[in-house]
Every structure is written in C-alpha cells, then in structure tokens.
Amino acid sequence: MASIEVNGVVIELDEDGFMVNPDLWNEAVAKALAPTEEVTGELTEDHWKVINYLRNYYLQFGIAPMIRKLTKETGFSLKEIYDLFPTGPAKGACKLAGLPKPTGCV
C-alpha cells in the first residue's frame, strides 16, 4: 500500500491515493496530495472554501454532501469546481479534503 510522509507523519493511501485514515488529515496533507490530482501551484482561498466545506460536512454527516449542495453552499458552479479541481468534486476535491473515495455508481 502506498503512503506519503507529511511533517514526519506517515499517511497511508489506498490504491486510488485516498487517505486510509481520514482522522490524520490536516492542511499540510491537503497540500501534499494536491499535485496527485492535477491541482498545480498554491492552494488558493477558493480551494480552501471547497475543501473546508467538504471536510466539515464529512465530519458532521460521515459522507460527502450532494454535489448540488456543494455548489449551492460554496457559491461555485460545477464548472468553477472543475477549474479548481480538474479531476472533479468526487475525486480531486474529496481527496484533498481527506474524505474516503466515494464508492458506488459514481
């Protein structure tokens, strides 16, 4: 199984590069995972808005929010989310926010 080391902590990743233990997430982990999802350059305020929304929803409900809810609550259109996270909300954004990979018919 793959892993990365962030600030001296070993973070285990599943075969798709998602965190195996979402509790170990912190902002430095998000930054370290960014290049694996085609997010280049610094994470901007807009990136953090999406990441933090996903993160907080996940901590409260144990799952990613509906994509429509994500766009509504962050004020970003789906296209804008794709501009921020080229691999999309279910993959890039969820991975950077430390959520498990959404599974099922997605």
């Binding site: 144990g62 799952i63 509906m66 809810k69 959404p102 599974t103 099922g104």
Partner: peptide, 27 residues
C-alpha cells in the same frame, strides 16, 4: 467487495448514513 461491505453496513453502495439522507432530502 467495498460495495458489498458498504451495503452490509449502511444499506447503500455509497455508505450514506441516515443523518445525511435526511439532510439531503431537506435540501
């Protein structure tokens, strides 16, 4: 297997818990 496990635990492929289901319906 990951889907079979989710269904066993939560009754759906994605693993949506009851709280999230209610929140989504309200939305």
């Amino acid at each position: 297997m990951s889907i079979a496990k989710q269904v066993d635990k939560t009754g759906n492929n994605m693993g949506i818990p009851k709280g999230a289901c209610i929140d989504s319906c309200e939305f």
